[in-house]
């Protein structure tokens, strides 16, 4: 099986973002998508801290401490970009004005429930940021994650065991071995990496998956 690395996952996800889309990329893994957007499409990135039309990282020495992204990294603003305050920023998300958000996840359930803010461990310090607002407010929520956790368990689950971020909010999951489309409470497989069979994927997740690949018999 040819597992995708994180860069390949970001590249693959970026191909599914259409021209003209307003997109919010969560911190961590989803940030990689910014560098993979197809150059022939005009895709506008929103950052929760008050940027629309966010551009790439500045050249060394050109950093501006007042121009950062949600992960507090230095960024630039594209011509046509603008700034706004936090209530407007979250009105964009919650009000359904953002077409796609891409979030990382600890777990996603087949019904679209998302858990990505807290492990629930007693010594962990929880932090939620804008994840709950994006999960409920963006028109589509994509998750980008490795399918298997470090302990070998599937992160696509029947029911989340970590505290929830949002209910039935995830529509697609881009993983290192397959792409899933979630609808009607079930997880459909729309792409598999080379060398992995549908049955092998079913045994990895221990879920009743649907083969939704092009040409697959229902």
């Amino acid at each position: 099986m040819k597992r995708m690395n994180r860069q390949m996952m970001a590249y693959r996800l970026a191909q599914d973002i259409p021209d003209g889309a307003y997109v919010n990329l969560g911190i961590g893994l989803p940030t990689l998508v910014a560098n993979c957007l197809p150059p022939d499409r005009e895709i506008i990135l929103q950052s929760e801290n008050g940027l629309l039309g966010m551009g790439p990282a500045p050249k060394a020495g050109q950093e501006d401490p007042d121009l950062i992204n949600a992960g507090k990294q230095s960024v630039t603003l594209l011509p046509g970009g603008c700034f706004f305050h936090h209530a407007d920023s979250f009105a964009m998300m919650r009000g359904g004005h953002i077409d796609i958000c891409v979030l990382g996840a600890f777990q996603v359930a087949a019904n679209g429930d998302l858990a990505n803010w807290h492990t629930g461990a007693p010594d962990a310090i929880p932090a939620v940021g804008g994840a709950m607002d994006l999960a409920v407010g963006a028109r589509q929520t994509f998750v980008m994650m490795e399918l298997m956790a470090r302990d070998g368990s599937s992160k696509l689950v029947k029911q989340c065991t970590y505290p929830l971020t949002g209910l039935a909010c995830v529509s697609r999951i881009y993983t290192d071995v397959a792409i899933f489309e979630l609808s009607g409470g079930r997880a459909g497989v729309i792409e598999l990496v080379d060398g992995l069979t549908f049955d092998e994927l079913c045994s990895m997740t221990d879920l009743p998956l649907i083969d939704a690949r092009e040409g697959a018999s229902a």
Binding site: E48, A87, M93, R94, P126, V128, G129, M132
Partner: peptide, 12 residues
Amino acid sequence: LAPQGNLAARIQ
């Protein structure tokens, strides 16, 4: 702890 958008909306 408060979700960021709820924090902003409650302040507003």
